[in-house]
Each structure stands twice: as structure tokens, then as C-alpha cells.
């Protein structure tokens, strides 16, 4: 049995995950961070992306967007602005949203491009999470 650590994922509205995991991957603002048990204390902002973690019973994925992560004392605490389990995302609807966001990106004005880019990243994260969750289920 590999070493485990406690992963907590919460949004302002509810707690998503609170369990012992062996491995987690987080979408930090500056790129993905892989976490194993015994990680050094760390604080980082999160971007839009896919958070995946492995427990004894398998792997699960969440699409998250924004927020923070705190790693301390074998606890990984994720404060996400938004979160969704990959299984709960409708993959085709998410893909449609991504297409819409991409289409918008082409027509958008320079100064508003940040918001649209964020929307694209968010949509991409949801699609990725849905696909990743779906692949494993299949």
C-alpha cells in the first residue's frame, strides 16, 4: 500500500472531495503540479483545468476553474471557484460550448480577448474532464 494523503476539494457552495488519495494532479496557474504523499508546503493559484486523483479504488477527475491550492502537512486543500465531477459533465454539451467559445475568439475585439480566452480554457477543461471520465468508464 502506497503512502496516502488527504485531498479536500471545496467550492464556496459545497465540499466535493474529502478522502485519502495516493496521487493527485492539479491545474496550477503556471502548469500542472503532481502531488504525492509528503509534499513540501506549497501555495499556488489555480487555473482552469482538470484535477485528477487516484485512490485505492481507482482514478477520478474534476473540471475546476480558478481558486487556490494549499499543500501542508500531508493535506492538499483545493479552494476552487467552480468544480464539477467529470462524470457529471455532458460531454457533447461541453464540446458545443467549446466550439462556441472558439468561434467567439475569432471575432472578438483585442481588449475583450482575456475573458474569451478564459471561457475557452474553462470549456476545454470541461471537455477534457468529461472525456477522461468517459474513457475510463468505457
Amino acid at each position: 500500500m502506497a503512502d496516502t494523503f488527504q485531498l479536500e476539494v471545496a467550492t464556496p457552495e459545497r465540499l466535493f472531495v474529502d478522502e485519502q488519495v495516493t496521487e493527485a494532479e492539479l491545474p496550477a496557474q503556471n502548469g500542472y503540479i503532481g502531488v504525492l504523499a509528503g509534499h513540501a508546503p506549497l501555495l499556488s493559484a489555480l487555473g482552469a483545468g482538470v484535477l485528477s486523483f487516484k485512490t485505492g479504488s481507482g482514478e477520478r477527475v474534476l473540471a475546476i476553474d480558478g481558486g487556490f491550492v494549499e499543500i501542508y502537512d500531508n493535506h492538499v486543500r483545493v479552494l476552487a471557484d467552480r468544480a464539477e465531477f467529470g462524470n457529471d459533465i455532458d460531454a457533447s454539451a461541453a464540446r458545443r460550448q467549446l466550439d462556441e467559445a472558439n468561434a467567439q475568439l475569432k471575432s472578438v475585439h483585442e481588449k475583450d480577448s482575456d475573458a474569451v480566452l478564459q471561457a475557452v480554457a474553462r470549456a476545454q477543461a470541461r471537455v477534457d474532464a468529461a472525456e477522461k471520465a468517459g474513457r475510463r468508464a468505457a
Partner: peptide, 15 residues
């Protein structure tokens, strides 16, 4: 706690 800061604390605080 002596964290490793991925971003400068000031910018984290701002968000």
C-alpha cells in the same frame, strides 16, 4: 507556515 509560493504572496493576496 513556510510555504513554497508558486506566485508571489502579494499577487496571491490580491486575488
Amino acid at each position: 507556515i513556510d510555504y513554497i509560493y508558486e506566485q508571489p504572496p502579494a499577487s496571491l493576496l490580491r486575488t
